[in-house]
């Protein structure tokens, strides 16, 4: 048998040796549906930020600034939680042409 695949690249036993490296894994590529945020409609109630399981709602100084598509898996929870009278986030098919907001 040839040599073992490098321990550096594949640490023995599947150990993760550098803590907190989940950030390096961009789960955004799993997405099949994409949330689109409308800045004009948004009332900054923070429901989307609160419910997003992937911390993918970008917030600066108490205001929503957009969606981090590197980590957003497209679950649609933000769109669902956005209040009915606001509807600032809607879901489109990934790959469809529309402004990312």
């Amino acid at each position: 048998m040839k040599e073992t695949p490098s321990n550096k690249e594949f640490p023995r036993g599947g150990y993760i040796l550098n803590p907190g490296n989940a950030a390096e894994y961009q789960t955004g590529e799993w997405r099949s549906m994409r949330p689109v945020w409308d800045k004009e409609k948004c009332i900054n109630c923070m429901f989307c930020w609160l419910f997003c399981p992937d911390l993918a709602i970008i917030v600066e100084e108490g205001k929503v600034k957009g969606i981090n598509y590197d980590y957003c898996k497209g679950c649609g929870i933000c769109s669902h939680e956005c209040p009915d009278r606001v509807k600032a986030i809607h879901m489109i098919k990934e790959g469809e042409q529309e402004d990312r907001g």
């Binding site: 073992t4 150990y15 803590p19």
Partner: peptide
């Protein structure tokens, strides 16, 4: 600190199995 028992998907699972065989 290390993590043991993490997920290994199609991009790495096979390498770990080959290491075991070796």
């Amino acid at each position: 600190p290390v993590t043991i028992g993490a997920l290994a998907l199609p991009d790495s699972y096979m390498e770990f199995k080959v290491q075991q065989a070796q």
